[in-house]
Structure formats: C-alpha cells, structure tokens
C-alpha cells in the first residue's frame, strides 16, 4: 500500500512537473542559459578555479549543450551538487541536466526517473601500479600484493574478478584511502585499486608520480554520462545528440581548429549533414543548422575535451582505454546524423 502511495505521489510530482514545463528546450532558449548540475571537487571532472570558474571534463559537456542550444558555451548556470542532492535537483527541475560523474544503472533509469544520454566516460575499477613492477594486464597480478580499501564494493569486485580468472594475489586491506596510499608508498604492495576517476585525483599526490602508472584497464562497469528527467523526449534528444556530436566530430576529424574551414570544403554527405549544410537534421532536433558547428568550435570534439582535462598532456596522464573510438578499440560509437 505504501509503495503504491509513494509511486502515485512520485508520478504526480514528476508528471505534473513535466506538464507544467512544456518544452524544456524552448524554455532554456528563452531563459538564455542552461542550468547544469556538476561536481565541484572531483579533479579532472569538475572543479572551481581561484576565480570561481568551473572547469573539467563533465563541465565541458555542459558547455557543449549550451553552445548548441543557446549559441554560447558560457551561458551556463552551474549548480554544484552533492552526491545526495543530485537526483532531487533533477526531479525538482532545479537543473536542466545532470553531468556529475553519475553512473548509469537500471534503477536510476527507472525508479529515480532519469534518462541517460550516451556515456561520456567509461569509468570502472582500475589500478595504479609501480612502473618497476612491469604489470601491464590483469594476468600480471599473479602472485602480487594489491592494496585495497576494506568493506567497499571495490574489495568484492577485485575478489570476484580475480577468482573468475583464477589469479592468486594477496589483498592488503586498509580502512581509509589515505592508509591505502601510505602503504603503497611504503612498498607494501605493487598496486592500488579503486575507481579510475579516484585513481586520477590521487595520482599527482604521490611522492614520485613518475614512478607509477594508471593501467588503461577496468574490471567493473561505471559508465558516467549526462542525465535528464523523464518526460521530455525532445530535451532528452538534444542532450543525447550533442553528446554524440562530440564523438562524431572526432571520428570524422572535425576539430575546433578546422570546423570553420570544413564548412567551406566538406564534401562527404555525412559530414555536410552534421555541419548543417545539407538536410534538415538539426531542425528536426529543434536546433538551428549551425548548432553542432558551435559545439565543436567553442568546446571541441570528444578527443579535444578528453585531452584538455584528463589526457597525457595533463598531470593526470590518462590513456583513452575504453574511452577511445570504436575504430581504435574503444566503446565510443556515434550513430549517424541522418
């Protein structure tokens, strides 16, 4: 009975809200800025600089959506959300889109009432290893010691995966992440395991960052991506296809530097449609023909976004791994713009 009542209440709130909103796309264009829920303290993904400006991998996707919808990547009102308030913020309409390292799961898709746009970052449990250990793949962990935080899903994941692969290793358990890293620094273990995004933020804090490397492999699934509220399909489409656009542009070699030239020179029909030169693809999405041109020009394609925030030229030095194009053995695959 209580469940039914709760479900009724939820559907009333959500449904009533979607109705009152009408088209979120039109509302955002009229308002002239995008309310984007982000993290403000996850290095590489969402941080605030000393001037108070947001930056990071997730933040760049807010900017991409604003560039497509409003025409200006800076027309974003950021809302820094804690893990516990992020879903309420979407449900109450406080933010138009949530891009806060949120893992796409079935219950969030159904019960929480979110629609997930394509995954922008395939996170998952990864490993930081000592360069000297020579470990480069999961099989190399045979006979090694791994430092891990006790009582976490990380610990269970590790045990499951290693058991399935029949690899024997010695787990060294600690209460806190600080202790885990202290033990790693003291050479009590060859590697540390936790979520990739967590490894990234710790990597530069090591005493000798050069002596360690983050392996480009993951042993669990934590797909992170933008999410919007159920009930507004047009808005969901826009967020989804702006995300795809960054991946599409990388696949076809369209970058922030050459996108203007491509407008003059592009010949491939698939690229011409993407740039809004042929067809009505963008209009069908509710955008103007140059929407994706602005995304690439103002923010860049997926490869540029990744390189700027997490890639080898940054202090995090992350390899693309699963986050490479499908043509390079990754999982990024944009459907055609047609």
């Amino acid at each position: 009975m209580r469940k039914i009542l709760l479900a009724l209440l939820a559907s009333f709130l959500v449904g009533g809200f979607a109705q009152a909103q009408g088209g979120l796309l039109a509302e955002i264009q009229e308002r002239g800025n995008l309310a984007c829920g982000v993290n403000q303290s996850l290095p590489g993904f969402g941080v605030i600089d000393s001037e108070g400006n947001f930056s990071g991998f997730d933040v760049d996707f807010c900017r991409a959506i604003a560039a497509a919808v409003i025409g200006d990547a800076d027309a974003v009102t950021y809302r820094a959300l804690t893990a516990s308030e992020r879903f309420t913020a979407v449900q109450s309409g406080e933010v138009d889109v949530l891009i806060r390292n949120t893992t796409w799961t079935s219950s969030r898709d159904s019960e929480v009432g979110l629609n997930f746009a394509p995954t922008t970052f395939y996170d998952g449990q990864g490993f930081t290893v000592k360069r000297a250990s020579g470990i480069s793949q999961v099989q190399d962990f045979e006979g090694t010691t791994i430092c891990v935080q006790s009582g976490t899903t990380t610990e269970l994941n590790l045990a499951d995966v290693m058991a399935a692969l029949d690899i024997s290793y010695t787990p060294l358990l600690f209460e806190t992440a600080d202790q885990v890293y202290a033990a790693y620094e003291a050479d009590q273990c060859e590697s540390v395991t936790t979520d990739m995004s967590g490894l990234v933020s710790r990597s530069t804090l090591l005493q000798d960052p050069e002596a360690s490397v983050i392996l480009p492999i993951t042993i669990s699934k934590e797909p992170l991506g933008p999410a919007v509220l159920h009930g507004d399909d047009q808005w969901f489409d826009v967020v989804k296809w702006v995300t795809f656009a960054t991946m599409f542009a990388e696949e076809y070699g369209i970058t922030s530097d050459n996108v203007r030239d491509q407008l003059e020179t592009a010949e491939a029909p698939v690229v011409r449609r993407f740039l809004g030169l042929d067809g009505q693809v963008m209009q069908q999405l509710g955008l103007d023909s140059e929407a994706m041109v602005r995304v690439i020009e103002q923010v860049g394609n997926y490869g540029e976004i990744f390189a700027r925030n997490l890639g080898p030229d940054t202090q995090f030095g992350l390899e693309r791994g699963l986050n490479a194009q499908y043509t390079d053995g990754g999982l990024l695959y944009s459907p055609p713009f047609r």
Partner: peptide
C-alpha cells in the same frame, strides 16, 4: 574540498 581538488593544488606533494 574545493581548493584541494583544483588541478594546481594537486601538484603540491
């Protein structure tokens, strides 16, 4: 939380 997460802060050992 916020300042220790900045990329610049992460450069300090």
């Amino acid at each position: 939380r916020i300042i220790p997460s900045q990329p610049e802060s992460l450069l300090y050992p």
